[in-house]
Design a protein around this nucleic acid. Structure first.
Length: 547
RNA sequence: GCGCCCGUAGCUCAGUGGAUAGAGCGUCGGACUUCGAAUCCGCAGGUCGUGGGUUCAAAUCCCACCGGGCGCUCCA
């Protein structure tokens, strides 16, 4: 519905510019002050550099082109100081808006920005060497909500988890389990490599080894089996944790599979064909400096082992070969230094680097009151995502993470999150949904058929009601904005604002009354409830009927 | 030293070219015989790290500096 206003403006701008490809990207927004109208646009500002006129003059010119389209949409147009065009909407517009939202219902907010393009979102991808921790949790929420937003924005989305089940880290896990097993069973054997992982979960896995374990003569095959077993167990608990956190995947991609189908040597060969490989000091190097990296990188070590980097190139090539239009990687910010080398490799191999978009998710610092929480993974002293979710609740954790830009570090105070459980913003939003549900229950007892309400076109909306509708009408634009900018945190702020307007309206206005306008107010509530439900669904947060 | 991110109210953070810079928490004071007070209303609180520059217009863009986090492995 907001599109009718956007198109209305676009037509006038096209008319003013005398060409439709001179129309810039613009949006409408709700002005800060009531006297500035119901909606406003700053198109004139974006036009100013090209037209080389003051924004105010441009805005005036545009507004003159708008006169003919006014009936049924806009009742008044103001052009203000620096160059804003402000709109006071016609009563018909508000009615059409409410109707549009209520009729679209669960489909309201969807858009076709993605035009069916295929997009792969890879996120979390935590090593199966221990439970996922809170930092992974943040990446999980960012990736999950981004995937949901892209899906309702017309993309064909695949969610993927890359399992690092090859290489030294998992091997070290295997040794950790084995050592623990020996320790628990009082077996005195020297194992060549020390495992670096510790913690309760290592003990649990070694317990599970039970009678399957050979008592002596451990060979490499045994280690491999133990490692695989341990990684499987851990991956399983990771899946369980994520499920409890509302995060699911379409695809679990195994790094080991890249070893098994020989795609890593194949990729190295490809690089060799491009003359981007050299051998020195007993190792095989990718000459990434030729493609913008600051130093060359090892693909195959002196020992003959392949590096993580080598398999990661093969992984990315695999993604390209699967034919996606876009590849999104959600990485921890501590991996940012890694980006130039992977991009160098993709460039060297002739893949379009513009298809890869990497979101770096900054660190989470956990606090209990004013005491920082130890986060050493190796020592096994860290708060797992599961522990945090059990303690604070999935909805609150998600909402809290989504209030901050993924590019900002954030401090998560567990004590505070628990203490303010009554005042937590997530409850503020959920309460609004439950409150409307409760109004409906009451309305039914008064004989209203909430699902069979009729529209009364002569009803004139009050200021607060118009504000409520306006905010709801902006919803699709917020979704689109999130999809375009890939910023999943914008929706929580939108919701807090919407709910603020709703709660105020509720205290000022009795919805279910004796007057004949009750039906129109119930329709308004229905509209808000739809937007709340759709938005909360996108965030993976419950929209309760009761609290 | 180099690179990435951050520096906005007491605290945690939105806002990233445009109207009088916002929210939550915290402080203080009000509002329930009526649809849910997990709510609402009000008060207080800002050199937008510092200094320069670009622009009709800068918290937002550019440069320098200061402060914090992370990264600069033949680890992943």
């Amino acid at each position: 519905m907001i599109n009718t206003l956007v198109e209305f403006i676009r037509t006038a701008v096209t008319d003013y510019m005398d060409s439709d490809d001179a129309v810039p990207q613009f949006s409408v927004n709700i002005p800060a002050r009531e006297e500035y109208g119901d909606f406003s646009t700053g198109v004139a500002f974006s036009l100013a550099p090209a037209v080389k006129k003051p924004p105010f003059e441009i805005a005036s010119g545009i507004s003159k082109k708008m006169q003919k389209g006014i009936p049924g949409i806009v009742s008044r147009i103001d052009v203000i100081k620096p160059g804003y065009i402000n709109f006071f909407m016609d009563n018909k517009f508000w009615h059409a808006g409410v109707k549009d939202i209520v009729e679209k219902n669960t489909a309201y907010g969807k858009n076709n920005f993605g035009q069916g393009k295929r997009i792969l979102v890879e996120f979390i991808s935590a090593n199966p060497t221990g439970p996922v921790h809170v930092g992974h949790g943040r990446g999980a929420v960012v990736g999950d909500v981004l995937a949901r937003v892209l899906a309702v924005s017309g993309y064909h989305v695949t969610r993927e988890y890359y399992i690092n089940d090859a290489g030294n880290q998992v091997l070290s896990l295997g040794y950790s389990v084995l050592n623990e097993y020996y320790r628990l069973n009082g077996i005195d054997t020297e194992v060549s490599r020390q495992g670096e992982y510790a913690g309760e979960y290592i003990k649990n896995i070694s317990d599970m080894l039970g009678s399957h374990m050979p008592q002596s003569d451990i060979n490499e095959e045994h280690i491999r089996l133990i490692t695989g077993f341990a990684a499987d167990v851990i991956l399983d608990t990771i899946k369980q944790t994520l499920l409890g956190f509302g995060v699911g995947f379409d695809s679990w991609f195994s790094e080991k599979s890249l070893y098994e189908d020989n795609s890593i040597p194949a990729v190295i060969q490809e690089l060799e064909k491009k003359n981007a490989v050299s051998r020195s000091e007993g190792a095989t190097w990718f000459l990434s400096t030729l493609y913008g990296d600051e130093k060359d990188r090892v693909l195959q070590k002196q020992s003959g082992e392949l590096t993580y980097f080598a398999s990661d190139i093969a992984y990315h090539v695999n993604k390209y070969k699967r034919g996606y239009d876009m590849l999104v990687n959600v990485w921890g910010a501590d991996h940012h230094g890694y980006l130039p080398r992977i991009m160098a490799a993709l460039r060297a191999l002739g893949y379009d680097p513009a298809k890869v978009i990497v979101l770096f998710v900054q660190m989470v610092r956990l606090m209990r009151g004013d005491k920082p929480v130890a986060m050493s993974k190796r020592a096994g002293e860290y708060v797992t995502l599961k522990e945090l979710v059990d303690e604070v609740g999935s909805d609150a954790v998600r909402f809290f993470f989504l209030q901050r830009s993924h590019e900002s570090q954030l401090v998560f105070d567990i004590e505070l999150a628990k203490k303010q459980s009554q005042e937590n913003p997530v409850y503020y939003v959920q309460y609004a949904h439950a409150r409307i549900a409760s109004i409906f229950v009451y309305a039914r007892t008064k004989g209203w058929d909430v699902n069979g309400l009729t529209y009364a076109a002569d009803y004139v909306f009050g200021a607060e009601e118009k504000r409520l509708i306006a905010q709801c009408l902006l919803y699709p634009q917020v979704i689109m904005d999130m999809a375009v900018k890939m910023e999943p945190h914008r929706l929580t702020h939108y919701l807090i604002e919407l709910v603020g307007i709703l709660h105020k309206y509720y205290t000022d206005t009795r919805v279910v009354g004796d007057d004949s306008n009750t039906g129109q107010r119930l329709l308004l509530m229905k509209m808000v409830k739809i937007v709340l439900k759709n938005a909360l669904d996108l965030l993976g947060i419950n929209a309760p009927e009761k609290m």
